[in-house]
Amino acid sequence: MNPTNYLYISALLFTIGAIGVVVRRNAIVVFMCIELMLNAANLSFVTFARINGNLDGQVVAFFTMVVAACEVVVGLAIIVTIYRSRRSASVDDASLLKR
């Protein structure tokens, strides 16, 4: 099977994630969409590793996973902190940067 198909699905998933980030308001869902985008990128890396016949792509995907884990931990902590002070998990409510 042609590995390029994986790239197509990766692009589709990435696009869906991007739409989700813009469209959804719940911070947690937004976060999940970001995870989806990261995963889509990972799929591309793994596919590239296969196409090129070496494991470097997989190593990069591995690092991406670790960084994503860090990001989730810190991001969710931020969401909890914001929720604690604002009683809201909506990203639109944290719009004070304008003023």
Binding site: V91, D92, A94, S95, K98
Partner: peptide, 8 residues
């Protein structure tokens, strides 16, 4: 005026 303050 281009700044809405909305992350989205």
């Amino acid at each position: 005026s281009t700044q809405t303050g909305f992350v989205r």
